[in-house]
Nucleic acid binder design. Structure first.
Length: 691
DNA sequence: AGCACGCCGACT
DNA sequence: GTCGGCGTGCTC
């Protein structure tokens, strides 16, 4: 050991001792005399080192720089030749903690500014965001960006209203239709944290039931959070809550309010001025005080998956919150997801479902037909409807509106063999063929190769058919088939909230079905079911059933003449589950199958996507937990559409090792970034499009 | 990510 | 001898 090293160590030791005794800031700043160190989360996204930095608290900010406030700090500057700190760009950050000392051996830069004295990052919110970041192999800064809306100074200036006293315990209302419903409510009202998977009865009662669960929770002096998949369902629960509790006890956190109004409402929740929050997926992080219940409606809806890194899912965040904050949980909808079924099977939640006979009385009558059963009637043929569907619609139109669900919007369909329905694929690359235009040859949607001589690879037929006919064309054709009936359409571009209780054809894509005022639809036709079921996706059956049940739940009960016709293969499991109206049973069987195949949610999966070299590089770096499987990598169509060769590998671990998998992926990602080798890799926990 | 420090080639 | 290549590592 050289003498220089010894001296260096000694110097470091002395500096350390000085540090612990009293933190020292860059020259010329007078420090706060109590807790002069602020631990700060610097909001610099791709600063992949997901860690806190210590700053000195100037005396002038001693009171304001409380934990949870937004601050501005200099970051990344250099110590120049003069020994003075210079440069360093200003960044936003949050004070996470005030401390007496710092672990950092070096002069601390002072906080540049306290932006606001609002303590937006509460300890519970920080813990939640940390847990979400860990679960999804993401950074805390990314999650905070999803969790805390942008600041609007104007909103902070106004005081939030005084909180109203807790409401009285609500009557069970519609919950009386469920054997354990009243007990669930009274458990909430008594301050407990019951956890339930809810199989909601068909019909319009669910918003009010959610409102009663919220009211029961508020009655216990705690707060509640409800997350719904879209603005229309938020509006319905808002209405039900207002009817039950008046206004002033809940805030609606939906995207349609402007940013300032959104922040104002968020602050009202954060300050404890209102006890309940409802909204779409961003509301999953709402900082409700003393959370007693978290509700997720229709957890199978794909809009519960966040679109921003690290792509948290509302249901998973809700489960984390229930666990961390000791809250009850109500997860469910008209359909049941495999994940929800697993919560029941594992004993984490209890089923909240009605008796069979209640279900049978409230559900419509469901019949299946195959579309080989074509109608004789000329008008029915023009509408491409099987005769049973045609007859059902014709009869029901004398009594009220008829809902017609078509699986995808758009006019130009993809193509399949007219005889056996094998999808028409490009001979060059396997991509889907599409009609190039009026009288133009077929061409590939991926590579553009023209196909002039198509025949089916399975059966040799030369006949093509439109695999999916969109809402608009269906509307035109049905309009001709039922000449004197009004036709309305509801789809992605223009979604109707409701239709009047009068004869009309209502053509809708899944998820956009209007509610029929009054008793509900007289009938629903669910068309092109084979196209929904034929998707090469692990969730095809579950997803088809969820869409059908959601539409069919808007139809009158069988006793009031409600009828549903689904055009699909009658032996398919999802079709039979619809006929029996047994979503929980279907989810249970799907879960058995996933168990055997070790597919999610019976395992935890992650996908790793990028160039072949980058994926191989990351896979080589990973220190995966014991027993992890790596599936692939295999080529996948490039995301950007350009020719870059993209590959994807799936990594699968046992359910208990999800945290270890996420940690390994994050470590690997950070290592690659530090080495700066090659191009980026996208990591996704719980990838959606597997299978 | 920026941005500075550092250790090797062509120019005055 | 010096200017500058961008490879590597740190940022409180």
């Amino acid at each position: 050991m050289s003498s220089t090293d010894g001296a260096g160590e000694q110097l470091a030791f002395i500096r350390e001792t000085v540090r612990k005794a009293k933190p020292r800031a860059a020259r010329g700043v007078e420090l706060a005399d109590r807790l002069p160190v602020a631990r700060v989360l610097v909001d610099k996204g791709v600063l992949s080192l997901d860690q806190f930095f210590d700053y000195a608290v100037p005396a002038a900010m001693a009171d304001e720089a409380r934990p949870g406030v937004r601050v501005r700090v200099r970051f990344g500057g250099r110590v120049g030749a003069s020994g003075r700190r210079e440069g360093g760009a200003l960044h936003d950050g949050f004070v996470v903690e005030r401390r007496e000392t710092s672990d950092y051996a070096g002069p601390l830069a002072p906080l540049a500014r306290v932006l606001s004295s609002e303590q937006v990052l509460t300890p519970e919110l920080l813990r939640l965001c940390r847990a979400v970041a860990d679960r999804y192999a993401g950074s805390l800064a990314d999650v905070l960006q999803l969790a805390i809306p942008p600041r609007h100074a104007g909103a902070e200036g106004e005081p939030s209203p005084r909180p109203l006293p807790p409401p009285s315990v609500p009557e069970p209302g519609g919950w009386a239709r469920y054997p354990h419903g009243p007990a669930f409510l009274s458990s909430l009202a008594a301050g407990h944290a019951p956890r339930a998977v809810w199989t909601a009865l068909p019909g319009p009662g669910w918003p009010e039931e959610i409102a009663r669960a919220v009211a029961a929770t508020l009655a216990s002096g705690r707060g509640a959070l409800v997350v719904l998949p879209d603005g229309r369902s938020v509006a319905r629960v808002d209405e039900a809550l207002t009817a039950l509790l008046g206004s002033g006890r809940h805030a609606v956190l939906a995207a349609d309010a402007g940013p300032q109004e959104r922040y104002r409402r968020w602050l009202a929740v954060s300050r404890g001025s209102v006890q309940a929050a409802i909204g779409t997926r961003a509301a999953m992080f709402a900082p409700v005080r003393r959370l007693g219940l978290v509700v997720v409606w229709s957890d199978g809806d794909s809009s519960h998956s966040d679109l921003n890194a690290p792509y948290p899912h509302v249901r998973e965040v809700a489960l984390l919150r229930a666990a961390e904050e000791g809250a009850g949980a109500l997860i469910g909808g008209v359909a049941t997801t495999v994940e929800a079924a697993q919560l029941v099977r594992s004993g984490w939640a209890r089923p909240l479902a009605a008796e069979r006979e209640t279900v049978r009385a409230l559900a419509p009558r469901v019949r299946t037909v195959t579309d080989l059963d074509q109608a004789r009637d000329a008008a029915a043929q023009a509408a491409r409807l099987p005769s049973v569907a045609w007859e059902t619609a014709r009869e029901a139109l004398t009594r009220g509106p008829v809902l017609i669900q078509v699986p995808r919007r758009g006019y130009v369909p993809s193509l399949a063999c007219g005889r056996c329905r094998t999808p028409a694929r490009c001979r060059a690359c396997g991509g889907p063929l599409q009609a190039g235009g009026a009288d133009a040859p077929l061409e590939c949607a991926w590579c553009g190769t023209a196909e002039t001589d198509w025949h089916c690879v399975e059966c040799g037929s030369f006949k093509l058919r439109a695999q999916v006919v969109g809402a608009r064309r269906t509307a035109e054709e049905l309009g001709r088939a039922f000449p004197r009936v009004p036709v309305r359409t509801s789809g992605r571009e223009s979604v109707l909230a409701s239709v009047p209780d009068a004869p009309a054809l209502v053509i809708s894509t899944p998820g956009a079905e209007p509610v029929a005022e009054g008793a509900g639809y007289a009938a629903a036709l669910l068309l092109d079911g084979w196209a929904l079921l034929g998707r090469p996706d692990l969730r095809a059956g579950e997803e088809a059933l969820r869409r059908w049940l959601t539409a069919a739940a808007l139809v009158r009960p069988v006793g009031e003449g409600g009828a549903v016709v689904v055009v699909a293969e009658p032996t398919a499991r999802a079709v039979q589950a619809l006929v029996r109206w047994d979503p929980a049973g279907h989810a249970g069987v799907e879960l058995d199958e996933r168990e055997q195949l070790r597919f999610p949610p019976v395992s935890r999966m992650a996908s790793v996507t990028g160039s072949a070299a980058a994926v191989a590089d990351l896979l080589g770096l990973l220190r995966l937990p014991e027993g992890a499987d790596v599936l692939g990598p295999v080529p996948v169509p490039a995301v950007g559409g350009k020719g870059e060769e993209t590959e994807r590998a799936l990594i699968r671990v046992a359910p208990g090792q999800g945290a270890a998998l996420a940690a390994a992926l994050k470590a690997g990602q950070i290592a690659r970034m530090a080495l700066r080798t090659g191009d980026p890799v996208r990591i996704r926990i719980d990838p959606v499009d597997i299978g």
